[in-house]
Amino acid sequence: MLDRLPRTTALLAGLVLAAGAVACDPEGLHSAEHAGPFPHESPSDSADVSLEEALSDYGVRLPEGAEDIAYGARKALDGYPFNAQFSMPCDGVPAFVRDNRLVAGGKKTPDDVLTDVMDAGFTPGAGPAYARAKDSKLPGIGVAVFEQPGWCRVFLGA
């Protein structure tokens, strides 16, 4: 009986925490962010702003045809980290680079997207990397692009 008491206490504490989380956000985590105009948009648990707001704040224009968009943006944290990834037709990459004032940075995957790249199963350094041009007045971002048959996966981070 004594060995069951700590497990029961831990289970009860877990239930209380879960109930508190539901009570604080009864409509579901970030439910308002699903109303955005971007197809297949999926905010992560680390998003406290909409994708539209983060893109505007960082001066990023997503390309036409971007799909399977996932992002995280936390204004509540120092530095306002922002990461996004999406799929797009590879022939649109040059326009995306130009429209966002990016310059080629070789093949070294930017540190801002390295974890996301590895989590998605891509090999760091296997695709071109880009960064915001230093003379740009827009906030700095790093980008890595990985070409797959018929499409590219783009990782963006700041």
Rank of each mutant, 00 (worst) to 15 (best):
120 A>S: 02
112 D>N: 08
6 P>V: 07
62 L>K: 05
60 V>H: 04
7 R>N: 15
119 D>R: 00
111 D>A: 05
19 A>N: 09
75 K>T: 13
108 K>I: 10
114 L>S: 03
15 L>T: 13
69 I>A: 04
31 S>L: 11
40 H>Q: 14
31 S>V: 14
117 V>Y: 00
55 L>M: 07
90 C>M: 07
82 F>K: 02
31 S>T: 11
97 V>F: 03
77 L>M: 09
58 Y>P: 09
10 A>Q: 14
31 S>F: 12
92 G>F: 02
80 Y>N: 09
103 V>W: 03
10 A>E: 10
55 L>H: 07
16 V>Q: 05
71 Y>C: 05
100 N>F: 03
101 R>V: 14
118 M>G: 02
35 A>V: 14
58 Y>T: 09
55 L>E: 04
13 A>M: 12
59 G>V: 05
118 M>E: 02
70 A>W: 02
25 D>T: 15
125 G>Q: 00
11 L>S: 14
71 Y>Q: 07
56 S>L: 12
63 P>L: 01
98 R>C: 13
109 T>L: 00
6 P>W: 06
120 A>P: 01
31 S>K: 13
65 G>D: 06
98 R>W: 04
121 G>W: 00
57 D>V: 12
13 A>I: 09
123 T>M: 00
83 N>K: 11
13 A>H: 11
110 P>A: 01
45 D>M: 15
116 D>G: 03
81 P>S: 03
54 A>L: 02
97 V>I: 07
54 A>C: 04
31 S>A: 15
82 F>V: 03
44 S>D: 07
54 A>Q: 03
90 C>T: 15
75 K>F: 12
90 C>N: 11
119 D>N: 03
81 P>T: 03
26 P>I: 04
68 D>W: 01
107 K>Q: 10
39 P>N: 09
42 S>N: 14
83 N>Q: 10
41 E>I: 15
121 G>F: 00
23 A>H: 10
94 P>R: 04
78 D>T: 09
17 L>V: 12
52 E>D: 15
83 N>R: 11
15 L>D: 13
31 S>E: 14
34 H>S: 15
46 S>K: 07
110 P>T: 01
108 K>Y: 04
55 L>A: 11
67 E>W: 06
89 P>Y: 05
36 G>E: 10
65 G>M: 02
29 L>D: 15
53 E>M: 14
34 H>A: 13
67 E>Y: 08
38 F>Q: 09
19 A>G: 11
48 D>K: 03
103 V>I: 07
112 D>A: 08
17 L>M: 10
111 D>G: 07
59 G>C: 06
100 N>D: 05
103 V>S: 09
40 H>G: 12
109 T>S: 01
39 P>S: 11
53 E>L: 13
67 E>A: 12
122 F>T: 04
111 D>K: 04
126 A>V: 05
75 K>W: 15
41 E>D: 14
6 P>G: 05
108 K>E: 08
111 D>C: 04
32 A>Y: 06
51 L>R: 04
22 V>C: 05
96 F>Q: 08
6 P>L: 06
71 Y>G: 08
17 L>K: 11
118 M>R: 01
123 T>S: 00
120 A>I: 01
104 A>R: 09
64 E>R: 14
54 A>M: 02
97 V>H: 04
15 L>G: 13
110 P>D: 00
